[in-house]
Structures are given as C-alpha cells and as structure tokens.
Design a protein around this nucleic acid. Structure first.
Lengths: 350, 350
DNA sequence: GTGAAAGCGCTAACAA
DNA sequence: TTGTTAGCGCTTTCAC
C-alpha cells in the first residue's frame, strides 16, 4: 500500500477538474450517464497523473470485493495447478480475481485460511478439503454468512453442499475393468486415504468391478498407502511381493505410487506389463515418461476449475443456494503400455 | 462478501456491551491499554456472535492490506510452486497473505496483473517476469508508488532492481564441467529463451566452460528451443542427430526437453550415457523416474521464496529501497546416471 | 482505561 | 448530466 507522497484520490481529480467526486467516480467506471466530454477529460487527467483507484475502498463501499478464495491441499503435482488455472481463466472473464491458499493437507491450516479469506471479504470460497478434515464447523460459518461455498474434487460429508467432482468411481471402475479384460485375475489395489471421497470412490469401484466380474475380493491385495508418494508405492509393492502368490496387476489410487511400484518391479526383474500390469490415477505428465508408459485416468482438471466458477456464479445470482447442486465430470481412462498385456498398443483419445 | 442479514460490525458489539466502538476495536486487537476484564468480555461476545472483522475496512483505514502480490509465469512444473510455497510460509510468519497471479508468460497479462494488484492495494509485489517482457513501464509504476518490488528467478534489465536469483551461471558451469570431466568433448546445448536471464546465463556458462577447458564452441551444437517442452527437446535431438558427427553429450537448459531427447535417443537405440550423456536443469521430480535417472541442477526453489520475503521485509522497513539489493542462491548439481559415462554411480548430496 | 470524533477512498441514493 | 450527502467498518488521535 502506498506510503510516501500522499495518495492520489478521486477528490484530487475532482478538484483539479472542478467537478464533483461522484462525477469522477462515475466517469472512471464508465457509467452511461456521464457526458463523453467529461469522461474524456477525466480519463486523460487520470492517465496523466497515474491515478490508481483504491480497490479496497470501492470494495468496502460496494460490499463486494471481486475476489474469490481458493483453498487447495497443495499445488504440487499437475492436478490442482490445472484446476486453479481453469478457475482463473473463467473467473477473470467475470472480473473476479482468485486468491489461492494452500493447506498442506492440514485442517488447522484450512481453518486459518478460511478465517483469512472471510476477513478479506472474499465473494466466495472454493475448496478442495484437506485430508484431515473431519468436522466442518469452519465451512458452516461460511455458509451462515451467506458466502457462496463450492467444494471441488473432494466431496464433503455435508448436507446441501455444492460441489464439482470428477466421477472417480467411474474412472476407477473402467481402469479395473480394463485390467480384467486384459486377462488379469489377481488385481491388487494401492488405496488412498479412505476419508477422502475421491480415493474412497476409487477403492469402492475396485471392489465393485471385481465383484461384477466374478473375481474375489482379497484383503491381502489391498494396501493402504500412508501418502501418495513414490516411496509409499515402492513400500507397498515390496509388501505385495512378499506374499506367496503375486498379483498379476496393480491399480494404484494415484500416479506417484505407481512409479515406486514400477521401480521395485524393475529392480526385481519383474516385467511390466507382462508379469504384472500397472494402472495409476491422475494422468500426471510424467506418466508418459516412464518405461513402460503408465496407463492412467485423466481427471479433467481444467474443466473442473471452470465448472467450479460457473457453479459459483449461479450461487451468486440465485437466492436459494447451498441447495446441494452437484456437477460431476467424466474422467477418461488413458490406456498405455503398462497395462497392455496383449501388447497391442493403443493410445486412446489423445 | 456478506449479503443477507445485515453485517455484524464493531458497532453492534459496542452497543451490546455498552462500550464504545474504539474500545471494542482496541480489545479485539489486544491493545495493551484495555483492561483484561473488558477484553475478556469483548472476546466472549465476539466469539458467541461469530463476529468477523472486516479486513477491508481495517486495511483502508490503516493504509496497509497485509497482502503480497506474487506474479509468476505459471505454476506448472515443480519450480514455481515450490518458490511460492517458501514465500507463503515465510510471509505468514509476519502476518502477510500471498495472492498468486499467473501470466502464462504473456506481458499483456503481466501488465494486467500488476494493475489488479495495485488496485487491490497490496503491500508489495514479487515477480518472476514473463518471457516476453521487454519494457518495464508497469514495474516502474509500482516503484513510483513506493510499493516494494522484488524480482525473483528472472533478473530484469532494470537499474536498481531488487532481486533474488539462483546462480544459474554457476549451476550450468558445473554441469558442463562435469560433462567435460566425464570425458565428453563434443557437448551440445539446448538453449532457452535468451531474453530471460536464467537461461541466458546457462548458455553463457556453457560457452565459458567449454572455452575454459580448451574446447571449441560450435554453432551447430547449440539448438534454441522454442519452448521448454518435451516435444521441443525431441525435435532438437532429432536435429542434432542429423548432423554428420554426433555430440557425445547434451546439456539442456530445462528438464523437460531432456526427456524428449532421451525418448529420441532411446528410439534410435543410442545409449545414454554411454553414447551420449545428458544433463538437464531444474531437478524436476520426474528426473529420478527416468531411465537412466537424469543429472540435473537443483535451483533451491523454496529457499528462493523465503529469501524473497526476507528481502521484501527489509524493503518495507528501510527508507531507501529500490537500491538494487541482490540475493544470489547457490544451485546444486545432482549427478545421476544419465551423465556418468564412467558408470560410477554417485548420488551427490541427496 | 475508555469515549468522541474524524476520516481512510469510494459509491449510491437522491436532488437539482 | 452533475452535485450533495451519507456512510461502508474500521482505527486513531485527542480528550477525559
């Protein structure tokens, strides 16, 4: 914020031109009821003096900041940055700016970020909850203030929550079904946090797809990852390989662990996909850098971001919001070498 | 921003407690000259009523928003997110919030973002310029308003600019020298945009390192990448392989093109590092997922973010800023298989 | 330790 | 088409 030489305000322009402050304000905002001549006058002077409107004052007065708060667990990996990118593009069309906050997957930080955004008088809050969010008091507060609240990616266990999600169940189901069609019969799963809707749905789909194809569900084939890292994947793969009978495929709830699994398999001379097929989730850019290239599921990140803004705009306009609107995006299975036991390489829809 | 039921303000609390607005304000800000009894009273009521201070009003009155604007070209890849992360951590310690804006490497968007931040009355602007930024009028405006301005990563051609950069010259020099020590004599370079200080310095270091070791500089061994993508790297590698004599090493100005190069080499059955050694730059997480693992240079992203905030805080306190402070961070060469022709694998300092 | 009053810079009735 | 007036919610002298 300015410090030195006294700030240049609308009042100065008014005085300089012998007009009133309101006229200056109107002219600057290009209001229809100001004469073109006056506008021109005001604009040139503003330009000349490098006048900078004070958005804070305008926001305070208008009761609207035109800032949207976005809360994400992190911006590592490709997914959240892409979502945010979609949001920014869509939001800027409507004159909104986006303020990004990271929680590092910690509820404590999430609560603090909500406070910060509320205090900053944002016009809406868009959130992908942290992994450790079990109570929703901080979100209830947002709603009680009638501030539009849209969840994305991760679905909260909260009545009437508005949300944009990817159909993880569907994506995972297709992935597992694909493995089954490849002839895999003993499919393992590296599961994510079960409190998070996305990874829970991937797990459910895994179970259901097996059942639908008459394959037994085996406890020992499901490893719960402590986190979505390469290391966790390597550890999990090692555990799987300690079992008397090996799986013939592994479906991981994220891409990073698949990389760890691949490394372990590689080190042990186990061939992918011939001996064990591999499917990840997220379609991180590195999936095509691996050998073999990793089959994965595209979550439509950018589209998600755009949809979130659209939903927010609806909420802003309509009176009865918080009425539980949902937008579900279709993910897309991208079949690559790591899961093609038949060795017919088809890059689907890329 | 709130809409429905009239906003709860300090005035309401004051009325409720039979105190004045100023006392409430002081109590909420934990001012020393308010009795503990009153504070307790105020705090409990505020809590009970879910009072939410209006940061906009406070900022307007105080002339300080406690928001920092950060402008980055993008948040894809690992580098900028890590820098931003460092910034957020450091800034939040001092009560500042960070507003992130992307430019997509377009000056036009950069200029717009500067406007937006200025209008939002941020207390400082931290910027990694876009690739296409040649004129600096928009930054001069920031400085003329006495708003602290810190550049990072990419150094502007602007007198007295404050900046935090990584010593790209040094990092690249070490990389090339390492290749020379491995016995490489015909080292190619895939160069980045030469208007950007970072990649320009990597190129200069490449030339200088060659010269220092008595190796000739050959035009045909330098390919200028149109962008830092895998595809561009693949294209460049193809071009290099069309030459009668092949290089025995390639130093790429970023990591992504190295992946493209690797793919092409792989496809042609050219061994890395035995036939051609490869070194990238940035230490993206995927470098260790490649086969062979890619030698690269760590740019100390998080540290950079922290340093930027520290420099900003100095600027905020001291009167004579814009006096061209510079902080230079030492990058670190991470030697991996892709450049070890001697096949002695040493993971340095990891 | 607390209150009264002024004002940050802007916008929006309402008047003229 | 323009001006007058009031006030968004807060902080901060200056009094008492």
């Amino acid at each position: 914020m300015a410090k030195g030489n006294k700030r240049l305000s609308i009042a100065h322009l008014a005085q300089e031109l012998g007009l009133s402050a309101s006229t200056i304000s109107r002219a600057l905002n290009n209001a229809p009821d100001v004469s073109e001549a006056t506008k021109a006058q005001v604009w040139t002077l503003a330009e000349k003096l490098h006048y900078q409107p004070n958005g804070l004052a305008a926001a305070l007065r208008r009761g609207r900041s035109n800032v949207l708060g976005v809360i994400v667990p992190h911006i590592t990996g490709a997914f959240f940055p892409a979502v945010v990118h979609g949001m920014e593009e869509e939001a800027s069309k409507e004159g909104f700016n986006v303020m990004i906050c990271q929680t590092n997957e910690e509820v404590a930080r999430e609560k603090k970020q909500v406070e910060v955004l509320l205090k900053g008088q944002v016009d809406g809050i868009l959130v992908a909850m942290s992994k450790t969010t079990y109570d929703f008091a901080h979100f209830e507060r947002v709603r009680s203030k009638n501030i539009p609240l849209v969840f994305f990616d991760r679905m909260p266990n909260l009545a009437n929550a508005c949300a944009v999600v990817s159909d993880d169940y569907r994506g995972a189901y297709q992935a597992v079904e694909h493995l089954i069609k490849q002839g895999c019969r003993r499919i393992a799963h590296m599961a994510g946090h079960q409190t998070v809707s996305t990874t829970h749905n991937r797990y459910r789909a895994y179970r259901d797809a097996l059942a639908a194809h008459g394959l037994p569900y085996k406890e020992e084939l499901v490893i719960h990852l402590p986190n979505p890292s390469t290391e966790a994947g390597a550890q999990a793969m090692t555990t799987l390989l300690q079992q008397p009978v090996w799986p013939d495929a592994v479906f991981t709830a994220y891409d990073f662990p698949a990389v760890g699994a691949l490394e372990v398999l590689d080190a042990r001379g186990i061939r992918v996909p011939e001996d064990i097929a591999l499917v990840g989730y997220s379609d991180e850019p590195f999936t095509t850098m691996l050998k073999p290239r990793l089959t994965s599921v595209d979550q439509r990140a950018k589209q998600m971001g755009e949809a979130v803004i659209q939903l927010f705009l609806q909420l802003l306009k309509r009176p009865g919001y918080g009425t539980g609107q949902r937008i579900t995006l279709k993910p897309q299975l991208l079949i690559r070498e790591s899961s093609l036991q038949k060795k017919i390489f088809v890059e689907k829809n890329e």
